[in-house]
Amino acid sequence: MEILKTLDLVKHYGAGDNAVRALDGVNISVQSGEFVAVVGTSGSGKSTLLHMLGGLDRPTRGKVFVADNDLFSMNDDALTIFRRRKIGFVFQSYNLVPILNVYENIVLPAGLDGGAADAEYISSIIEALGLADKKNSLPNNLSGGQQQRVAIARALSAKPAIILADEPTGNLDTKTSGEVVLLLKMMNERLKQTVVMITHNEEIAQTADRIIRIEDGKVV
């Protein structure tokens, strides 16, 4: 089943001579349960692509479908609500909320949605990601690897249709990077969780089921 699809996705920044074609007609498709790596050099447009896939930024032209929903036909609020229910994010800089503890960070998307999180499911993720003894810690007391694991747990907590990971290992050392990617892979396999991961690291990309390469805003 196709869970993510883009249609002639175009994003230009600036205008005239200075126009930067960050994305120049991208068509990709991701199947449910797939682990896809998007690879490209810096400036290739891969981060822009991820922003579009997650509905964080609007494209100049083209469409993005997540679980058959046309993202950019929604207004800002609808898109925000869609995001917290259907899309999980993992960022390079973790982006945990510093004033909430680990557990509160993890259940934040569910809390914002007004539903109680599926406690059993949440505790199983926490267990699987090795965060059981850190539940009450504040983010700034955690190592980078631990923070990223919290971010992964948060992304999983709402049982999203897809997880978008933007250079999830960018701030981590080689050993920790390996651990984090393996955790992502494990979650992908165990929960049949679709994951799209952006990276510039070929080695890490090899963990994925499939690799999409981007250069100058185009899929090659």
């Binding site: 609020d77 925000t80 609500i81 995001r83 917290r84 229910r85 982006n95 909320v97 914002l112 949605d113």
Partner: peptide
């Protein structure tokens, strides 16, 4: 940045 992050995670305008 804090509010931007909350928005990314899915906090609505009204919230």
């Amino acid at each position: 940045k804090h509010y931007g992050l909350l928005k990314t995670i899915g906090t609505t305008r009204a919230q």
